[in-house]
């Protein structure tokens, strides 16, 4: 029953969604340049299957690299902000301002840092768009640690590092994973932004762009679906990691 609910129900929901989509296109008699239907997508996938694999992989690994960078840098920023009020108050306006800048406007600037078809450009955008929630959640997790938690170890003469390692870090993990789920999808948006806005012949964004140039609308829709599949994949990897490292925070429903 549990497995049925976890696997069969989501799959059923997807099938219903596809059927409704197909019906909508058929009912309105839309041409495929207005709205491609699911049955148009499969031929598009199959025709470009090797390109999908190759470009999908490029998009995936650069997203993961950008996300990894966001985890490391975001956690570090969150740590210093969580432990020092001065740093927190100093950095907050900078971070918020940075986050408020539409990343599409940063793309051409970043594209000049590593000139040409450099992977680092894409990774940087994925990083910039996704580190903010991680930094904020880690800093909030650390700064809202009740003083008693600190005191039970501090009163025994434990160092700041021990307090961080044994209490503050594990206690922040649920917030961290919550932010990571948001960051995963953001990182995808970042990668594709770079691939589409600043075409450099790599990734699913590039495939989307060539679909646009060739007026191949089913291909464009197929790329969108491929992106959604990759997003779901990464998201559930994060969910699995969360179960392993912060499963204790989940209340079991009886």
């Amino acid at each position: 029953m549990k497995i049925f609910r976890k696997i069969a129900v989501p799959i059923l929901a997807i099938l219903i969604f596809l059927a409704l989509w197909e019906w909508l296109v058929w009912f309105n008699n839309w041409p495929n340049y207005k709205m491609a239907s699911p049955s148009d997508l499969w031929p598009a996938f199959w025709r470009f299957r090797w390109l999908f694999l190759e470009y999908g992989w490029q998009t995936l690994w650069r997203t993961v690299a950008g996300l990894g960078l966001a985890v490391v840098v975001g956690t570090l920023i969150g740590m210093v902000m969580g432990f020092s009020r001065t740093v927190r108050e100093g950095l907050y306006p900078l971070l918020v301002g940075f986050n408020a800048i539409p990343k599409a406007t940063v793309v051409p600037v970043i594209a000049l840092i590593f000139v040409g078809q450099h992977d680092m450009n894409t990774i940087l955008i994925a990083f910039m768009i996704s580190f903010f929630p991680i930094a904020v959640s880690v800093s909030i997790g650390l700064s809202t640690l009740e003083p008693e938690y600190r005191d039970i170890l501090r009163s025994l003469g434990a160092s700041q590092f021990i307090v961080f390692w044994k209490i503050a870090l594990p206690k922040t993990l649920p917030e961290f994973f919550g932010a990571l789920k948001v960051a995963v999808t953001l990182a995808f948006i970042g990668t594709n932004l770079m691939e589409i806005v600043e075409p450099h012949g790599k990734g699913l964004g590039h495939l989307f762009d060539s679909g646009k140039i060739n007026a191949d609308y089913p291909l464009m829709f197929a790329v969108l679906i491929a992106l959604a599949v990759l997003g779901i994949l990464l998201f559930y990897i994060v969910v699995a990691l969360e179960k392993v490292f912060a499963g204790w925070a989940e209340r079991t429903a009886h």
Partner: peptide, 19 residues
């Protein structure tokens, strides 16, 4: 002058570690 291991503390909040 500083915390020492010969002290034990308990508070109103039991502050047990959930994990």
């Amino acid at each position: 002058t500083s915390p020492r291991a010969t002290v034990g503390m308990a508070f109103q909040n039991p502050v047990l570690l959930e994990w």
